Simulated assay, not measured.
Amino acid sequence: MGKKVLVIDLDPQTNATLMLIGEEKWFELNKKEQTLARLFKDAMDPDNRKFNLEGTLQKQVSDVGAARTIDLLPSSLDLIDVQDKLASAPAGKFYAANPIDLLWRAVKGKLDDYDVVIVDCPPNLGIITLNGLRISEGYIIPTIPDHLSTYGIPQITTRIRDFSEAISETIEPVGIVATKYQANSTVHNNVLKQLREDADLPDVMDTIIRQANAVAAAAEFQMYSRTLKQKYGAELAGQYDDLAREIWSALEA
């Protein structure tokens, strides 16, 4: 779509990072501490700050040839250990070093350079996720449409609403995205119907991402350039394209 996109990977699993730059490049950056883990480590040792935004920002990432307007702030497995320690980080002069503002302080000067910023958060609402929500105007909940995967959605929406009110910033639900959907599953179809009929939940987006082996295969970064259809297959690439356009329409609205 020609949009300039920044991906901020806050998930310690580093999936978004590995898909966009590959394991070899990530290992190199992680060794030099050019990941977001360094940003959060600095909060616990403010006299020894090492995070450098320009050095950490990876430009024109992705092995999809047409996607040359994507930049990335990579994640690190080190975030697993960092998150539990952030609550006890020094408050700083005048108690200004709020642990939920760490990411915002680091990237606020860059955000207006992009049409859209996608923050990939870990599957919890801890301090690192709150850092992602702090800079966000909306959020998307991807879920497998089964009972266990969707059980916590009401709690997620309630807590994000409470957080939004606490910081006096609007964070609206963009929608729920059903993923790994199996059309022949009675459970998936029944849960999807329940999600759509529940007026207390965010709207379920029209685009559904079906279960496909191509998703697992696409996770392997290739050094050569390829098309979206070559990466995911024609059907799945079409679904992702539809989803991107649906999300963009929701954001514009």
Rank of each mutant, 00 (worst) to 15 (best):
M1C: 04
K3F: 07
K4G: 00
T14G: 03
T14M: 11
T17V: 02
I21G: 06
E23G: 12
E23I: 06
E24C: 05
K25D: 08
K31N: 08
K32Y: 00
L36P: 03
R38I: 05
F40S: 04
K41S: 09
D42L: 08
N48R: 13
N52S: 15
N52K: 15
L53R: 07
L53G: 07
E54D: 15
K59P: 03
Q60K: 15
Q60F: 01
G65Y: 06
G65D: 11
A66L: 10
R68S: 14
I70N: 02
D71W: 02
D81R: 09
D84T: 10
K85G: 01
L86S: 08
L86M: 10
A87C: 00
S88L: 12
P90K: 11
G92T: 03
I100V: 15
D101H: 08
L102C: 01
W104D: 14
V107L: 00
D112V: 03
D113Y: 06
D113K: 11
D113G: 02
Y114P: 05
V116W: 02
V116S: 06
V117G: 00
D120M: 05
P123Q: 04
L125Q: 05
G126R: 02
N131K: 03
N131E: 04
I140H: 07
I140C: 03
I141Y: 05
I144H: 11
P145E: 13
P145N: 14
H147K: 13
S149L: 06
T150E: 11
G152Y: 09
T157N: 13
R161Y: 12
S164C: 03
E165Y: 01
A166M: 13
I167M: 09
E169D: 01
I171E: 00
P173F: 04
V174C: 06
G175F: 06
A183K: 15
A183S: 14
N184H: 11
N184I: 11
S185C: 07
S185T: 08
T186H: 13
V187R: 09
H188F: 05
V191R: 07
L195C: 09
E197Q: 11
A199V: 12
L201K: 07
V204F: 12
I209E: 01
I209G: 03
R210S: 13
Q211P: 00
A218R: 05
E220P: 04
F221G: 08
M223P: 03
M223H: 14
T227S: 15
L228F: 11
Q230M: 10
G233S: 12
E235D: 12
G238D: 11
D241I: 00
D242L: 11
L243I: 12
I247Y: 08
I247V: 15
A250I: 13
A250W: 05
L251T: 09
L251E: 09
E252H: 00
